[in-house]
């Protein structure tokens, strides 16, 4: 069995990015979703999804 070097794995235990960054990014992603909904992107998604996508299935 390999002997363990001192300090090895410490980075593995700790967050390299502070937790507040995650929370800020979560808020930003929620804002993105809200903005997209307000712009009517949901309708674009629905319009594409309820018709058979010929490109997706390989027909053109």
């Amino acid at each position: 069995m390999e002997s363990k070097k001192k300090g090895e794995g410490k980075e593995a235990m700790k967050r390299t990015v502070p937790i507040w960054v995650t929370y800020v990014l979560i808020l930003a992603s929620i804002a993105c979703i809200a903005f997209g909904i307000c712009r009517g992107e949901v309708d674009t998604v629905l319009k594409k999804a309820i018709n058979i996508c010929m490109e997706c299935i390989g027909l053109g």
């Binding site: 804002a31 993105c32 979703i33 997209g36 712009r39 949901v42 594409k48 999804a49």
Partner: peptide
């Protein structure tokens, strides 16, 4: 819906919009 397909559906629409809804959803 497929997220990757939906993302491209918004990108390739005539208005050339960034897909905030899908990108935000996947990022979340």
């Amino acid at each position: 819906s497929c997220p990757i397909g939906s993302m491209q559906a918004v990108f390739d629409a005539r208005q050339r919009k960034f897909a905030f809804y899908v990108v935000g959803y996947l990022a979340l």
